[in-house]
């Protein structure tokens, strides 16, 4: 299937009192229709900023964004407003992203009102249809968010995102506030909706097992840069970047016969403010050389559709 979203050399810098914060630094990727791009990384690596910049909820600093083949980088406010019908966001925290003074019906009807879509009975029918699609039973129609649990609140968030029949949805950690049994219910719902309605997702998360389950491709971020991008399965079978390897080995596996490779990464994320001209992972990387500390690595396609940003990727992996 064809390409829906393409991003070229996207940058988003924030000016802070301490200097320029490089939240997203020169990231390029494309997503095909009906596929899911998983974006993983630790807190503060810029993954949420990436999702929001692609949606044009925040202005980018440099680079280009294409949607359905059209350059949407510098569109007018009005065009941006129209674009909302096609692109939507599901928020992380179902506790703070819903207006506590609206009931479930009003919350879901809200996007329809904003865009003057459907009236009267038609609108009512659509709201009930949406509630049905996300698995909210009719008895909650007049409940308020505080009366519902996290899983049901997240279903409201999903129904709101679906209301305008978008093509592209950015899911920003949609399950991380939920318990495992509820998390599984929501993941199944997102997958079912994708199959039925042909959505394209960007799925931002820090949970690697979730991202493997739901994604077609995975993009690994580290302090604003893309360190590796590959098809989901391949990333887990053959990680190439030292950071990805460390990240994968750090996940606790719920299997007592699993033999663990001990790569405990020392140190913590360095600051994204005024980064030096170097590989951003150099400070924590066991393979770092002088080259890594003086030059920013470029992204190269090591295997088909498997991109890595590392000076020494070939030596480290013996390829």
């Amino acid at each position: 299937m064809g390409e829906l979203v393409r991003v070229e050399h996207l940058k988003k810098y924030f000016n802070t009192p301490a200097g320029v914060l490089h939240a997203v630094d020169d990231i390029s990727f494309s997503i095909n229709k009906g596929e899911t791009l998983g974006v993983v990384g630790e807190s503060g690596c810029g993954k949420s900023t990436l999702g929001r910049t692609v949606l044009k909820l925040i202005d980018h600093t440099d680079g280009k964004i294409f949607f359905e083949g059209k350059d949407i980088t510098n569109i007018s406010k009005r065009e941006n407003h129209e674009l909302r019908k096609k692109m939507q966001l599901i928020f992380q925290d179902p506790y703070s992203s819903l207006n506590p003074r609206l009931c479930v019906y009003d919350l879901i009807a809200d996007p329809l009102k904003t865009f003057h879509i459907l009236k009267g009975e038609e609108r009512q029918k659509r709201v009930f249809q949406l509630m049905d699609e996300v698995g909210l039973s009719k008895r909650f129609t007049y409940s308020y968010p505080h009366e519902l649990d996290g899983g049901r609140r997240q279903r409201i968030g999903i129904a709101r995102a679906l209301a305008l029949k978008p093509k592209f949805i950015v899911c920003d950690e949609p399950v991380s506030a939920l318990d495992v049994s509820i998390q599984a219910q929501i993941l199944n719902l997102l997958q079912d909706l994708q199959k039925q309605l042909g959505f394209t997702y960007i799925f931002v998360t820090h949970d690697l097992s979730v991202v493997r389950h739901i994604s077609t491709d995975i993009l690994v971020m580290y302090i604003g840069v893309m360190v590796e991008k590959s098809p989901a399965k391949e990333l887990f079978e053959r990680p190439l970047h030292p950071y990805t390897k460390g990240l994968l080995s750090a996940i606790p596996i719920p299997n007592i016969h699993h033999k663990k490779k001990e790569i405990v990464m020392a140190g913590e994320l360095t600051s994204p403010i005024n980064p030096k001209q170097e590989c951003r992972f150099a400070a924590r990387c066991p393979f770092a050389t002088d080259l890594c500390r003086t030059q920013v690595p470029t992204v190269s396609e090591v295997f088909p559709n498997h991109f890595v940003s590392c000076h020494h990727v070939r030596e480290i992996n013996g390829i």
Binding site: Q185, N188, V210, H213, P254
Partner: peptide, 24 residues
């Protein structure tokens, strides 16, 4: 058993998770 089935796996391919139905 339900808790284990709800977890997405890192090494096996599972098309669809089998969550525990309902709520606590």
């Amino acid at each position: 058993i339900g808790l284990f089935k709800s977890l997405p796996s890192l090494d096996k391919d599972v098309e669809r998770l089998s969550p525990i139905k309902g709520l606590m």
